[in-house]
Design a protein around this nucleic acid. Structure first.
Lengths: 218, 218, 218, 218
DNA sequence: TATGAATGAGAATTCATTCAT
DNA sequence: GATGAATGAATTCTCATTCAT
C-alpha cells in the first residue's frame, strides 16, 4: 500500500524512496533537525544520490510540499469532497457531514506525517502559506460556498452565517479531533471513534447551548 | 509594556533580554534553524554571554518552554478564566462565552510568538506534550467541568455532551480564529473583530444546522 | 620506514596519517594544548575529515593509547624480550642484559613520542594506568619472574631479591638513560652509547659499593 | 602544616592560596585542562582576583615552577642533602644511602603534586628543562661529585664509575620507587617501606649479580 | 548512474582576560 | 583591592554539498 500517496505519480523509484524517507524523518524531527545522511540511510541510498534528485536539502522539502499540496488539493482531497457532495445530495446534513468528517479524518490520519511537515513549515514560511492558501484554502472555500448554498436551499443549513465561518467551524473541529488523537494520543481517552464523531457532529450542528422551546435567536 | 510577560518574575535583566530575543528568533525560524549568534545579536549581548545564563542552546528553549507553561498555566490563563467564571456568574451563556473568547483571543494574540514555539516543539517532543498536558490541559479540563456543571444547572447548556467535548469545541474555534488571523493574516479578510466573535459564538452555541420549530435532536 | 609502527595493521591510509600527526602534535604539546586544526594541517587533511575517523578529539587520544598499548604489549615488546631470553639462554648475564638493554633502548627511542603521550596521560588518568598495568606491567612481571628463576638456577643472579625488584631496577636504569638522552639531550654529554650501556650494566650487576675481597668482574 | 612549602616565603596570603590551588588543580588535570575558574573556586577567591597576582594563566604556571625550583634547589633539597653528607660523614655507605633515600622519598611524597606539574611541563617545554637542569641537576651533580670523591677516598665506593652514573643510579631508583607507589598505588603491593628501602639499597650497592667469593654484605 | 570519502563553512561552546562597580 | 559579569577569540564538532571512482 502507498500510505504517502507517492506511487501514483511518475516519480522515479529512487526519488520516491527519498521523498518518503524525508517525510518520515522531517515529520519526526522537523526539517532543520534532520540530516541528509539520516534520510539517505532511511531511504537505502547513498548520501550523494540524494543530490542527484534534489539539488539541495531545501529542494527535498520543496518536493515534499509540492507533493503534499498536490495530494491535498488533488483528487485525494477535493475530488473526494466533491464526490461526497454530489453523489450524496439526497442525504440529510447529518449524513453528509458524517461522510465528510469520516473521510477527512481518514485522510488526516494517513497523511499525518506529511501534514505535520507541511504545517510546521507553513508556520514559518510565508511562501508555504501562500501555496497552501492558493491551492487548498481557495478551492475548499469555493466548494464550501457551493455546499453551503445547496444546503441552505434545501433548508438544512442556516442562512445567516457565511460559508467562511462554515468551513472554519468544520475544519476546526476536524483538526481538534485529529490533534487530540495524534498529539495527546492515549492521554485523552477516545473510547469509540464512531460515537465521538456523532457527538461532534451533533455539537457542530446544534451547538452547545440548551435549546429552549422557541427559536434560539429570538 | 511587557508583551512576553517576562518582567514580572525576578529574572536578571540580561537573562530576560536573551529569552525575549530567543522567543522572537525561535518563533520566526524555528528552534533548529536559529543560531545562538543571531539570538545574541538580537539580544544585544555577546554570544558568550548567552552561555553564562544557559548552559546549552537547548537550555534556552527549555527556559522558554518552562516560562510559557508558567504563563499559560498561571495567572494569565487560568486565573483570568476563573475570574470570568466566578465574577460573572449571573450573566447568560452568550455574555460569558464572549468574555472568555475575547480574553483568550487577546491572550493568544499577545503570547503568539511564545505559543508558536511551544506548539512547534510539542509537535515533535513527547516531554513537551506531557508538560503541556499536565500543566494546562488537565487544569483547563477541571475548570471546564465546573463551568459545564454550573451552566447545566442554570439550564443554559446542554447536558448531553461532556465537558471534554465542550472544551474542545471552544478551544478549536478560538484556535481557528487565531490561526486565521495570524497565519493567513490579510488573506482572509476579518472585517470586524467584534462581529466575527459574535458570529462564532452564535455558531458555537446553536450550531450550523437550520433550526426547525421542534427540538433539534428529534 | 614506519617508526610509529602504525603501518602493520589494517588501518585506512587517512586514519593512519591522522594518528601519526596526532602522536606528533600531542607528543610536542600535550593532548589538551593541541588543536584538531593543527592535527588536520599536519596530517594534510581537512579538519572535518578527522571527525569521520574519530568521533571526538578524545577518541583520537584513545586511538593512540590503544595503539600504543598494542605495540608495547605486542610483538615489539614482549616478543622481543622473550626472544632474547629464550634464544640466548646459553649466554652469561652480562651478555643477556646488554641485549635486553640495547633492545629496550632502541624501542624506547623509536617509540618515544608515543610513549611520551602514553605516560603523560597515565599521570592523570587512572583508566590509562590500569590499561598500562594490566597489559604491560603484568606481562613484563611474568617474564621477569621466569628470567629471574632461570638466572638464579644458573647461579648467575642473586636469589635474595625478588623479581619485582629486579624488573624495577632494570627498567629504572633504562628509563633514566632514555630520559637523560631525550629530556636533557645535549646537556649531559653521552659520549659513547656502547660504553655508556656497559657501565650501566656494570653498576646494575655489581652495584656502586666498593667490592671487598677479589675483583667483581672476574 | 604547609605541605607545599609555600608559607615560608613572603608571599601575600591570597597569592599563596592561588598558587596552592593551582598546584592542586594542575596536578590533577594538567595545566591545559585546568581552568582559571576552577582554580579561583578552589582558592576561594574571585576569578578576577587571580589576574591581580598573575598577569596570565601561563604566569600562574611560571609562579609554580619558579617556586618548585626554589624549593627543590633550596634548603628543602640541597640543604638537607648537604646536611646528611656533612653531618654523617662518619657513617658507612649503607647508613648514608638510607638517610639520603628516606629523606628524598619523604620529600618526593610531600612535594608530589608539585613535582608532577614540574615534570609534565618539563616533558613539553625546553625552557622548563633548562631551568630544571641549571638549578637542580647542576647543583646535584656538584654535590654528587663531592660525595663520590669522599666515599671513594674512604674506600667505600667504586672508583671506576663516574659521579654522573652514580647520581643517575640513585635517582633512578628513588624515582622508580616513588612512581611505583604513586602511580601504581595499591597495584604493586609495597608491604614494608623500611624493608623495601633496605632491599633497594642492597641492590643499589651490590647489584643484581650473584656474588662469587665471600659474602658481599660482610 | 550511484557511491561515499572528503571537504570546509558555519554552529555551539569554552575560557582567559578585562573592567565597571 | 576584590569582585564577577561580560566579552570574543579560539576550539570542537556538524553536515550539506562536491567529486573522483
Amino acid at each position: 500500500m502507498d500510505i504517502w500517496g507517492l506511487s501514483g505519480e511518475d516519480i522515479p523509484e529512487k526519488e520516491r524512496r527519498i521523498l518518503e524517507a524525508a517525510i518520515k524523518i522531517f515529520s519526526e524531527k522537523g526539517y532543520s533537525a534532520s540530516t541528509t545522511s539520516e534520510i539517505a540511510k532511511s531511504a537505502g541510498v547513498a548520501e550523494g544520490t540524494i543530490f542527484r534528485y534534489f539539488k539541495t536539502k531545501k529542494d527535498i522539502l520543496r518536493g515534499i510540499l509540492i507533493h503534499a499540496v498536490n495530494i491535498l488539493s488533488g483528487r485525494l482531497v477535493i475530488d473526494s469532497l466533491e464526490k461526497i457532495m454530489t453523489r450524496l445530495e439526497e442525504k440529510d446534513l447529518r449524513t453528509v457531514l458524517k461522510q465528510i468528517l469520516v473521510d477527512r479524518l481518514k485522510l488526516a490520519d494517513s497523511l499525518f506525517p506529511m501534514v505535520r511537515v507541511l504545517l510546521t513549515e507553513a508556520l514559518y514560511h510565508e511562501d508555504v502559506r501562500e501555496a497552501l492558501y492558493q491551492n487548498i484554502v481557495v478551492r475548499a472555500l469555493t466548494i464550501a460556498e457551493k455546499f453551503h448554498r445547496e444546503m441552505v436551499q434545501k433548508g438544512m443549513m442556516r442562512d445567516d452565517i457565511d460559508h467562511v465561518m462554515l468551513l472554519r467551524a468544520i475544519m476546526a473541529n476536524v483538526a481538534a479531533l485529529v490533534a487530540q488523537r495524534k498529539i495527546f494520543e492515549g492521554k485523552i481517552e477516545v473510547n469509540d471513534m464512531g460515537k465521538e464523531i456523532d457527538t461532534m457532529i451533533d455539537v457542530l450542528m446544534y451547538g452547545i447551548a440548551k435549546q429552549t422551546g422557541e427559536d434560539k435567536k429570538g
